[in-house]
Design a protein around this nucleic acid. Structure first.
Length: 879
DNA sequence: GCAAGGTC
């Protein structure tokens, strides 16, 4: 180690300026330290003398600012149209120093030229180790004789830093390799999919909700997409929720000692008949004996020490600050020395931390100073050491105040941390709330999406890309664009929007960092799989088109070339009287007759979805005017039309063709919407409407009404709301249960899709009523009983034994995910039915309640028979 | 014009 007492020059490099300063201050003991400028204005150079294991050293301590290098493709692959995006899975990549890091690079080169040793003080995590190798590459390129050492430290405290520099180790190549692999995979997947979906979709649709869509980038990233997935999935859950009425039996007993409230152990029942029978039994035998009093003590534990994610969650929950803004404010407070480093996973204080000293600092504060005093008073018994959250990034302590301040003049309100509490309660049959920012951060944290320093960036990216919106309550909803992209990939069967891909990658990265897998092996396997996925996604691009078509109009920038066929003329457009109507087949194979004046004229006649072939003939319809209207020779798919219809049919779109109208009604049109009104009753009434030649008020075509109009369905800006309901969300009637306001909504479940219901918006009130039970008959309230419960709702009491499997419309692939949610709900109900059938084999619920065992029927009977039913509620079954 | 990860 010693070279005969001659001093050597040691270049020490930290990950950030603050660490360089701390290390230099500790090692120099703040004596004889000289500070000079480097090439980069932020990265100073600290110089002082020190001795490492008896070797006199001239120490130079400087820093970088995170990564010095970036991974990118070779120049010839950088332009978007330079290559097939699939080629990006193999295109050569290299690490380069970006323009804004060149100053730091020059400092490192200049200083390392005159040094004998290089000591790396980068953060002790995988990224830090990777940055260490970037520094090594830059320094050894100009000085190959450098001796390279790594300082390992877990906190910027004196003993730790001195121990570290006296026990230097080798840098960990495995850690660095894991990051290399992560960078390369992220770049190749991100760039290929982003270029692919941007170039495929941006010009094909009018994405008018984002302003100028010509510059839109439809990015894909292994972190941003799963984050989007969380938002969309919750949104679908909310949408697919179908409220169910339930009944509870509430019991109070007032005596001289006061009022006692008894809660039903079962909580509630969804079956009205069952509930009313039990209720009647209670009425008949109203006296009861208290057999057991169970007292339960509940503990509420104080939170773990604060790490970055918890800081962001709490700032969002209590202050409604976005995670991105929180990190900005925290960074400012850190820079000003008021709080410790804000980017940390650590949620446990080391045993060496003097917590009392931290509290001591706060004694002067006008608001919480007295509380700090009480904490420190041994007589109060209030002091307890914070719990250990179990995480330690070995680089930073939990976030805590480092300096007292009663508040600074230049602080905005955002810089004050004022504690409040907030609780959120929801009813059983209410849909879950949309994801809040805190929820989203939790989802990401749980699934390992992003790091504590980047999670807020991913959320912001979703907002910047117009994939999600955030409401006033910091709750996220997907935009049409965000939902369409997730739907498209989901329909392909690829879970690119799920967190699994990132989790698998993270698993592999861990293997590389532990040396159990090589970087090359992981890169090869992962990229091979992802390329296969990319190729397959490209083959299935129709799924993306279909999903986008649900929400957006086709753009005239590419619509003409996208449609197959030359577009043979059927007739003159009766709407604009200027252009011809031509027969076309859309990308998804459905036939239509549309006006060539598009987009100025949007007249379109969608033909039945069961048409497999259609060709214009020279024959002209004799009855329809204005002539000529050419007849079309159709071929229908046998399996999609009723047996009494022929597969071959010479038809007319002018309004005279009953068969064509009937098949349009039976099979639906070729649009992405599920065909409505397939039931016999509705078919009849619609058929009558058509025979009177009524037209859709939107596109003025026969064969459908406004509600089913394909033009409305695909209309860009309004598609989402119209698809659900034209009136969803409007405050409409006062709640007959609590007096608050009920809004009208539309059920989206298999059994009741499209059916309107009123739902109370008041927290804790679960009242709902089907709109049609109010609209028909005697009008509002006519079919409701004195409790405001719809009689139709009661009728559904039999649902416990008459489950109907949801019908899946195979033509609406884009809706598959939503359908799956419904299926899941149905399965859960089915399981509950199974449990009951095990308790009372071979008997219906009615027969159980109606026989001589009626008196014995109670929740406790079932509980005894099936132990798993003990204390079990519908909530448990849903869980 | 693309990813995610550092940090100013």
């Amino acid at each position: 180690m010693s070279n005969g007492g001659r001093s050597i020059s040691v270049l020490n490099v930290a990950e950030k300026p603050s660490v360089a300063k701390s290390v230099a201050t500790i090692l120099s003991r703040n004596q004889g330290m000289r500070i000079r400028e480097g090439r980069s204005r932020y990265n100073k150079i600290f110089e002082f003398n020190y001795s490492i294991r008896g070797q006199p050293c001239r120490m130079l301590v400087t820093s970088v600012t995170g990564h010095v290098m970036e991974l990118d493709f070779d120049d010839r692959y950088r332009k978007w149209h330079s290559c097939d995006p699939a080629a990006l899975f193999e295109a050569p990549v290299r690490k380069i120093v970006p323009q804004d890091k060149l100053d730091i690079k020059r400092t490192l080169e200049e200083e390392s030229r005159r040094c004998q040793w290089l000591v790396l003080w980068l953060d002790c995590d995988r990224e830090g180790e990777n940055i260490a190798f970037e520094v090594i590459d830059i320094c050894t390129a100009v000085n190959q004789r450098l001796t390279i050492k790594r300082a390992r430290f877990s906190a910027l405290i004196e003993r730790e830093i001195h121990e570290s520099v006296q026990n230097l180790v080798e840098p960990n190549q495995w850690f660095a390799h894991a990051v290399d692999a992560r960078q390369e995979i992220d770049l190749r997947i991100g760039a290929s999919f982003t270029r692919f979906q941007t170039m495929l979709l941006r010009d094909a649709f009018v994405i008018d909700s984002v302003g100028d869509d010509r510059n839109l980038v439809l990015s894909y990233g292994p972190c941003q997409f799963p984050t989007l997935g969380f938002v969309v999935e919750r949104y679908w859950e909310v949408q697919s929720h179908e409220p169910e009425e339930f009944w509870t039996i509430n019991c109070n007993h007032r005596s001289e000692e006061g009022l006692a409230t008894f809660n039903w152990m079962r909580g509630h029942l969804f079956d009205y008949t069952c509930a009313i029978i039990i209720y009647e039994m209670c009425i008949q035998e109203p006296s009861a004996t208290v057999t057991k009093v169970r007292q339960q003590e509940k503990y509420k534990y104080p939170p773990h020490p604060l790490n970055t994610i918890e800081l962001e969650k709490r700032a969002s929950r209590y202050f409604r600050m976005s995670s991105e803004h929180t990190m900005k404010v925290a960074e400012e407070l850190y820079q000003a020395g008021f709080i410790s480093y804000p980017r940390t996973e650590t949620d446990s204080f080391s045993a060496r931390t003097n917590l009392q000293a931290i509290v001591q600092e706060q004694l002067e504060h006008p608001v919480w100073g007295s509380y700090a005093q009480q904490l420190l008073d041994p007589g109060s018994g209030l002091w307890r050491n914070p719990s250990n959250g179990g995480h330690d990034d070995k680089a930073h302590p939990p976030i805590h105040p480092t300096k007292f301040s009663p508040g600074e003049n230049n602080w905005s309100q955002d810089h004050h941390f004022v504690p409040t509490t907030l609780t959120l309660d929801s009813g059983v049959t209410r849909p879950p709330p949309l994801l809040s920012e805190a929820d989203l951060l939790s989802c990401m944290d749980k699934a390992g999406i992003g790091t504590d320093a980047t999670m807020h960036d991913h959320i912001k990216k979703l907002l910047d890309r117009f994939y999600v919106t955030k409401d006033q309550n910091t709750r996220f909803s997907p935009t049409n664009l965000g939902e369409a992209l997730v739907m498209g990939y989901d329909d392909m069967g690829y879970k690119l929007w799920k967190p699994n891909l990132r989790s698998m990658m993270e698993f592999d990265m861990k293997a590389v960092s532990e040396g159990s897998k090589s970087k090359t092996e992981v890169l090869q396997t992962c990229l091979q799989q992802m390329k296969a996925c990319f190729i397959d996604a490209r083959l299935n691009k129709e799924k993306l088109f279909e999903a986008m078509s649900v929400f957006f109009d086709r753009s005239n920038r590419s619509v003409r070339e996208d449609q197959h066929g030359t577009g043979e003329v059927v007739c003159l457009c009766q709407l604009c009287n200027q252009s011809n109507m031509v027969l076309k087949q859309s990308r998804d194979g459905n036939f239509m007759v549309s006006c060539l004046g598009y987009p100025l004229c949007r007249n379109v006649v969608w033909l039945p979805g069961s048409v497999s072939e259609a060709a214009i003939t020279s024959s002209v319809c004799n009855s329809c005017t204005p002539r000529p209207i050419h007849m079309i020779q159709f071929k229908f798919r046998r399996s999609e039309i009723p047996p009494n219809y022929n597969v071959d049919h010479l038809g007319c779109i002018g309004g005279c063709d009953d068969i064509l109208r009937q098949l349009t009604e039976i099979c639906g049109t070729g649009s992405r919407m599920p065909a409505r009104g397939r039931g016999s009753t509705q078919s009849q009434s619609t058929a009558q409407t058509i025979s009177r030649q009524q037209m859709c008020t939107n596109c003025r075509q026969t064969g459908h009404s406004l509600g089913d109009c394909p033009s409305v369905v695909s209309a860009a800006s309004h598609s989402r709301t119209r698809r659900r309901s034209t009136h969803d969300g409007e405050a409409s009637v006062p709640c007959s249960r609590c007096g608050a306001s009920c809004t009208v909504r539309t059920a989206n479940t298999a059994n009741n899709r499209g059916r309107k219901f009123y739902s109370c918006q008041a927290q804790g009130c679960n009242f709902f009523v089907w709109a049609d039970s109010l609209d028909s008959g005697t009008g509002g309230g006519g079919r409701r009983d004195s409790n405001g419960v719809s009689s139709r709702g009661r009728g559904r009491g039999s649902r416990g034994s008459t489950f109907v499997s949801p019908k899946i419309d195979t033509r609406t692939q884009s809706m598959n995910t939503k359908t799956r949610f419904l299926e899941e709900q149905w399965k859960i109900k089915k399981q509950f039915q199974l449990v009951l059938s095990r308790v009372f084999p071979g008997r219906t619920l009615e027969s159980i309640l109606g026989d001589g065992g009626r008196r014995e029927w109670s929740s406790s009977t079932a509980d005894k028979a099936v132990p798993s039913l003990q204390n079990r509620t519908w909530d448990d079954d849903l869980a």
